[in-house]
Nucleic acid binder design. Sequence first.
DNA 1: CAGAGGCTATCGATCGATCGATCGAACGTC
DNA 2: GACGTTCGATCGATCGATCGATAGCCTCTG
Lengths: 213, 213
Amino acid sequence: MAVSSRERVRAAAVKLFATKGFHGTGIRDLAQEAELSSASLYHYMGTKEDLLAEIMHTALNRLLDAAREATAGGGDPVHRLRTLVALHVLAHAVGPAETRVVDNEVDVLSPAAREPVVALRDAYERLWAAAIDEGVAAGVFRVEHPAVTRLALLEMCSGVARWYSPRGPLALDELAEHYAELASRALGCTSAPGVTDLRRCREIVAKEWGVSV
Amino acid sequence: MAVSSRERVRAAAVKLFATKGFHGTGIRDLAQEAELSSASLYHYMGTKEDLLAEIMHTALNRLLDAAREATAGGGDPVHRLRTLVALHVLAHAVGPAETRVVDNEVDVLSPAAREPVVALRDAYERLWAAAIDEGVAAGVFRVEHPAVTRLALLEMCSGVARWYSPRGPLALDELAEHYAELASRALGCTSAPGVTDLRRCREIVAKEWGVSV
DNA sequence: CAGAGGCTATCGATCGATCGATCGAACGTC
DNA sequence: GACGTTCGATCGATCGATCGATAGCCTCTG
């Protein structure tokens, strides 16, 4: 078979959870989308909540791995921050369904299932916090409330998944570069207008997400 | 009675829809929160969907009215944009539950019920677009993709409802001013570092939302 | 090689629970 | 006694989940 049933179940869940929400998606909806009976569904998953948690884990691990790889070696905080922004935007543009599930449905998880998901998200945000804090310490960023600004920038970038369409006027590269510039400006970046290593970001996204960007 | 049952139903719906989502909130949950039987609920509302639509209408109309009042008379695009940002942030900080319902649950409405809600949101966003476009035309904003930037800033500001806590280190005034500054920078504002008329924004929020800010 | 046994994948039928919504009746107030 | 408000009881529909059964395939055995 071209795609395994397991993959179809996962893809169906991502699509439906993103468009109709977790509670708005029934077991029978999932079964229909995955072209299986509702009974067969349970051959590939635990409970519906397990399925959601698994989606979040793989999505967040992928984003975290990509961000770590892209910023490995430390270096210039400005460049690192621009890389994180571009990567985040690319990820949200190529996989809006998955990222919307991660961003919107965390609260439906039981506390026990939510805890490791939040831990992954926190680890990811620490990469942003480190780049921002180091930039502020080095004087290349001039911003009054670094922690609040980090949250503001993250929300700004995640919002891409809510409206971006590949049929719009902006190509992915322009989008990522523009957001890197917005973030750079918001942080009061004092160095020369930077360039982002988009090629590297695209490569990482292509590898981790398995799409050609 | 101190608060009418009608108000309790509305407040219960806002609270529960925001925390558990529309589909995650049952009629019996609403009834318990509003301290009524599930049957009595229907004395004050139509269907559950009607209740959601009504919440969205009042919330969006309030925001739209406030934004129109705050920017009435036109004038400097920079000042208008800063006012819109501050107002938006204040609104999302004092009423996070309501704004989260508006921002997250639009898609659960049937097309017929969704259409007027989207129209209200579009009217609101046009105020932002006008301020940004006029600023770009006047040369006080220097930004490459004004439409995309508008969406980015709106998402950034709406995100406040997802994390802001009045028990945090930032007072409302500092928060609103900081976001106005972030937006101003992102737009490449060329005029002197602006000040926002926070007093006026606070007055409008206090009046429209019925809270002391 | 025949076939017994086990494993994977799938299904129709069905479970008890809960869903949104409605009914007729009772309450208090004017 | 009319009206605005409240409720217990209950409706048919749908929920997430499980059941026993079946068909195909691989492996081990005699």
